[in-house]
């Protein structure tokens, strides 16, 4: 039977993957985050290549399970996930749509490009620290904000506070 059923096109598979939510921040999908790097068929088996956000992010394994169950629900029983480490994931891959969704959800999206922030002088370590980004409050849009804790509730976030509306909020770090 499987021989006579057409395999879903890769475009369709991409659209399905765009409906798989991130387990920690469900308003954004795994494609919004830029962690799906490639989709292809290996014979009849669908292969989805993803890259982890942070090395220790516990969401990675949940994402793998979500992909396989989302594909199974759409009739693709034979799917596997591959992990690709290089190039390393960066928040530069977040779509504009993803940044808007994060803001609407109450999380300030990354400011600036990691490619610029993290350019490293390979010859010598330096304490030259890039100026802290100006992060706008996702609730009142004031830029009068301050960092409360560089480490936040998940590896990808810092905790900030808005001095205008006094609300604390998460900032999705530029990485």
């Amino acid at each position: 039977m499987s021989a006579v059923v057409d395999k879903p096109s890769l475009d369709r598979v991409w659209r399905w993957l765009a409906e798989v939510p991130d387990p920690e921040i469900p308003v954004v999908s795994i494609t919004d985050l830029g962690i799906v790097r490639e989709v292809r068929y290996d014979g009849d088996q669908l292969v989805v290549t993803v890259t982890p956000t942070y090395s220790g992010c516990p969401a990675t394994e949940v994402i793998a399970a979500s992909i396989c169950s989302a594909m199974a629900a759409r009739g693709i029983a034979d799917a596997r996930m591959e992990t690709r480490l290089s190039p390393a994931w960066t928040t530069d891959w977040l779509s504009d749509d993803a940044k808007r969704k994060l803001r609407d959800y109450g999380i300030a999206p990354p400011v600036g490009l990691a490619a610029n922030e993290q350019r490293i002088d390979l010859s010598r370590l330096s304490r030259r620290v890039p100026a802290a980004p100006v992060v706008a409050c996702p609730r009142c849009a004031s830029t009068n904000t301050e960092v409360l804790s560089p480490s936040g509730s998940t590896p990808c976030k810092s905790l900030y506070r808005c001095a205008a509306c006094r609300e604390p909020f998460d900032y999705f770090k530029c990485h």
Binding site: Y54, S55, G56, P58, S149
Partner: peptide, 21 residues
Amino acid sequence: ALEEDMALTNTALDLLGQARL
């Protein structure tokens, strides 16, 4: 402090992920 508790354990989590790789 709470912030330090989070920083120490976030660092631990990064290192654990690297160790797994």
